[in-house]
Design a protein around this nucleic acid. Structure first.
Lengths: 233, 233
DNA sequence: ATTAATTGTGTTATGATGACGCAAAGTTAC
DNA sequence: GTAACTTTGCGTCATCATAACACAATTAAT
C-alpha cells in the first residue's frame, strides 16, 4: 500500500476547500485581499486566500484559518455565499470550494504573506489582475452578493472606523453600489433609521465644516430588527 | 489492500452530498417533499431527498439526480442556498452537504419512492415530522431563504399552473410569507408590474364572479430586468 | 328574482423619496 | 483679520408608492 495515500474510501471523494473574498475600505475605494501563489498549479498567479478543510473544523472555520495562515489577517466575521463545483475547476483533483466573504477596515490589519503564499496584498477593486483557478468568477459573484446584502444587513459598518462621519459612510455605500447619492437625502435617511449614535466629537480632518462623528450601535440595531421594524439601507 | 476502500488520498477527505428542499403548492398551503429512509443511519425516519456527489457532475446536477432517483421527481430549476458542514452531522463519516431548494406545482409530479427511500410523500409545511440528520435546521433555513428571495425573483410562478388567477397568486404569496394582503391592493400592484399576460379565458371554478386568467411571461420579465427596471413583488 | 360570494376599479390619506435652496461652521489664501 | 472657498446640517417641495376603504360588476346557489 502506498504510504503517501493512506486515507481510503469505498467511493471517490472530492477535496473540499474554503476560499475568502476579503473586502477592505480605505475611505475612498474598495479593495480585495489577494495572495500570490508560491506553488503549482498557477504558481506566480494571484488568487483568493483559501485552502483545504480539515476533519475537525467547519468550512467557515477553515476559511478563517486559511486566511490567517496565508495573509496574517484574523477576521471574526466570515460568511459563506456560494459553493463552486465545476468538474474541472482544479487541475490536480476534483475540488469543490465554498466561497466566503468578509469586510474589514484596511487600516486594522497588517498583511503578511505566509504558508503557500509568497506575497499578500490589497488590490483596488478596479485594477485587478487575472486570477488563478475560477477565482475571477468567484470574485464577481462576491461583488454581486455584497451589493445585494448591503441593503438589508449592516455589514458595511465593519468597513469603517469605530467613529465615522455620515460622509464617510456615504462614500462607502457609493463605492460598494457604484452609484451616487444626494448628500442631503442620504444624511436624512441614514440618521432617520435610529441606529447611529451621535458622539460628543467632530471630525476636524476635512477642509470645510467639521462633520459630526457617529458610532454604530449594534445592540440598538438588533433590538429594532427583533421588533420587526423594517430596516433597509 | 482492502478492495472495499480503493479510493485513496494523501489527506483525509470529507464526503460531499447534495440535499433538496422541494416546495410544492396545491392552491391552499405549502408542502415539502420528504422520503422515508430505508437504510441506516436514521432508518425509518423522514429526511430530505439527497445523496453523494459523483466525480463527473456538479453539486447541483447531483441534487437533481438524487431527487429523481429517490422520489421520481425531475425538476429543472434547483438552486443551492447554503452549505452545512458541522463536524458531527452524519454518524457514518465526515459529510458536508450543499442544500438546494426547488419550487413546483404538486399536481405536475407523480411521486414514487425509489433507491434508498421506502416512501416518498408531500408533507404540509405546518405538520412536519422530526427529520433525520440536521435536516430540520436545513429546512428552516430553506424557508427563510424562500421568504427572502420571493420578493426579488419570480420563483413563485413555478408553483402555479400555466394559467392562474390573481387570487391564486395571492394565496401563494400569503402561504410563503405568512401574512395577509389586501386583495385589491395586491391586484393592482401585481398587474402593474407588467409581467402578467391576461388570457382570453376566465376561471369559472369558484363560487362568485369568475376571475381573469393570466400567464407569467418570463421573456417579458427578463426583458424588463435587463432594462434595469426595479422589480419587487 | 334574490342572495351571497367573488372580482375589478376607483378614491383618498399617509408616508417615503428625490431634487434642490440656503445658512452655519469650518479651512485656506491674502 | 477678512474674504473666498469647502463642507455640513437642516428645510422645502413635488412626486411616487402604499394602505385602507368604497363600490359596482359578475357569477353561482337558492
Amino acid at each position: 500500500m502506498d504510504n503517501e495515500n493512506k486515507y481510503c474510501y469505498k467511493y471517490p471523494h472530492a477535496a473540499l476547500t474554503a476560499d475568502c473574498v476579503v473586502f477592505g475600505f480605505d475611505g475612498e475605494s474598495l479593495a480585495v485581499l489577494l495572495i500570490e501563489r508560491g506553488i503549482e498549479p498557477f504558481k506566480g498567479r494571484w488568487a483568493l486566500p483559501g485552502g483545504f478543510m480539515r476533519m475537525d473544523e467547519t468550512i467557515t472555520e477553515c476559511a478563517r484559518r486559511e486566511l490567517l495562515e496565508e495573509t496574517g489577517v484574523d477576521i471574526e466575521f466570515v460568511e459563506q455565499f456560494n459553493t463552486f463545483s465545476s468538474v474541472d475547476r482544479d487541475p490536480r483533483e476534483r475540488v469543490v470550494t465554498v466561497a466566503h466573504y468578509a469586510l474589514v477596515r484596511k487600516s486594522d490589519y497588517k498583511v503578511m504573506a505566509g504558508d503557500d503564499a509568497v506575497k499578500a496584498k490589497w488590490w483596488n477593486i478596479k485594477e485587478l489582475p487575472t486570477l488563478a483557478f475560477d477565482h475571477d468568477s468567484i470574485l464577481r459573484c462576491a461583488e454581486r452578493v455584497l451589493r445585494e446584502r448591503i441593503h438589508f444587513e449592516p455589514i458595511g459598518f465593519n468597513l469603517l472606523d469605530e467613529k465615522f462621519t455620515i460622509s464617510e459612510l456615504q462614500r462607502l455605500y457609493e463605492a460598494i453600489l457604484g452609484v451616487q447619492f444626494d448628500r442631503r437625502n442620504f444624511h436624512k435617511k441614514i440618521t432617520g433609521l435610529g441606529i447611529l449614535v451621535p458622539l460628543d466629537e467632530k471630525d476636524t480632518s476635512g477642509r470645510g465644516r467639521s462633520g459630526q462623528l457617529y458610532s454604530f450601535n449594534e445592540r440598538e440595531y438588533n433590538a429594532l430588527k427583533n421588533k420587526g421594524m423594517k430596516l433597509e439601507f
